[in-house]
C-alpha cells in the first residue's frame, strides 16, 4: 500500500517534475485571479449603469458564462478556434476562459457588494462635489469589498482549484505534470503528491475564509 501510493523513491524522482507543475499552477493562479477580479469589477461597474441598453446585454453575458461549464468553454477555445484560423495555445486559452467564466462570478459578487452600500453614502459624497466615479472609488467600493470579502475569497479558492482544468489542454500545471510523472513511473504516488500540495496551498485560505465568515457573523450580531 505504502509502496503504491507513498513510494519515497518515486517521490524523490518525481519531485522536480511536480515542482515545475506547482510553479506553473502558482503562475496560472497569479494570472487568472487578477484577470477575473478585473473582469468582475468591470462587469459590476457596468451593472451600476441602469440603462436598458447596458443592462440587458450585460445580464445575458453574465448568465451565459455562468451557465457555460468552464471545461467545455476551455476545450471549445482550444480545439475550436484553430478551425477559425486562430491558434492560441493552452495557456492563453485558460486565461481567456477564466476571464470569461470567473469574471462573471466575481462580477456578481462585486455587484452584490456595491448594492449592499446604502445610497445615502453616494448622496453624501456627491453632495460634497465628488463625481460619480470618485464616489464609487473612494466611498462605495472600499465598503463593498469589505462586505463581500468572504465571497471573494471563496470564489478565489474555486478559481485556484479550477486551474487544474489546464491539464486538459496540455498546460504543464501541477495536475498535468503529476500525471506525466505517473505515466513515466507507472505509480500513482505523483498524483498523491499533487493532492497533498493542493491541500497545503489551499488549506490556509480555507482557514482564513472561516475566520472571515465568523467575523462577519459576529459583526452582524
Amino acid at each position: 500500500m505504502i509502496q503504491t501510493f507513498f513510494n519515497l523513491d518515486i517521490m524523490m524522482a518525481a519531485w522536480p517534475i511536480v515542482l515545475s507543475g506547482l510553479k506553473n499552477t502558482i503562475l496560472l493562479s497569479l494570472i487568472v485571479v487578477p484577470l477575473g477580479l478585473l473582469g468582475g469589477l468591470i462587469l459590476a461597474l457596468l451593472a451600476s449603469i441602469k440603462h436598458p441598453l447596458v443592462r440587458w446585454p450585460l445580464m445575458a453575458w453574465v448568465d451565459f458564462f455562468r451557465a457555460f461549464p468552464p471545461l467545455v468553454l476551455l476545450i471549445l477555445l482550444f480545439a475550436g478556434l484553430p478551425f477559425a484560423g486562430l491558434e492560441l495555445g493552452g495557456f492563453a486559452c485558460v486565461a481567456i476562459a477564466f476571464f470569461l467564466n470567473t469574471g462573471s462570478y466575481y462580477g456578481e459578487i462585486f455587484r452584490a457588494g456595491i448594492e449592499s452600500v446604502p445610497n445615502g453614502q453616494v448622496e453624501a459624497a456627491r453632495s460634497t462635489g465628488l463625481s460619480r466615479l470618485q464616489a464609487m472609488r473612494y466611498v462605495v467600493l472600499p465598503q463593498a469589498v469589505r462586505n463581500v470579502l468572504p465571497d471573494l475569497l471563496s470564489n478565489t479558492l474555486e478559481v485556484v482549484k479550477l486551474t487544474s482544468l489546464g491539464s486538459v489542454v496540455a498546460v504543464p500545471e501541477l495536475l498535468y505534470e503529476a500525471r506525466q510523472a505517473q505515466s513515466i513511473t507507472y505509480n500513482p504516488t505523483p498524483i498523491v503528491m499533487a493532492a497533498v500540495i493542493y491541500f497545503l496551498i489551499l488549506w490556509p485560505l480555507v482557514r482564513l475564509l472561516s475566520r472571515l465568515e465568523n467575523r462577519a457573523l459576529a459583526g452582524r450580531r
Binding site: 446604502p118 445615502g120 453614502q121 448622496e123 453624501a124 459624497a125 456627491r126 453632495s127 460634497t128 462635489g129 465628488l130 463625481s131 466611498v139 472600499p142 465598503q143 469589505r146
Partner: peptide
C-alpha cells in the same frame, strides 16, 4: 455640478458618514 456643489453643503437625517 461637482464644482457647484462645493458651495452648497448638505446634512442628512441619517448622517451618512463614511464608516470605513
Amino acid at each position: 455640478i461637482n464644482h457647484a456643489r462645493q458651495r452648497i453643503g448638505m446634512v442628512f437625517q441619517s448622517f451618512n458618514l463614511y464608516p470605513h
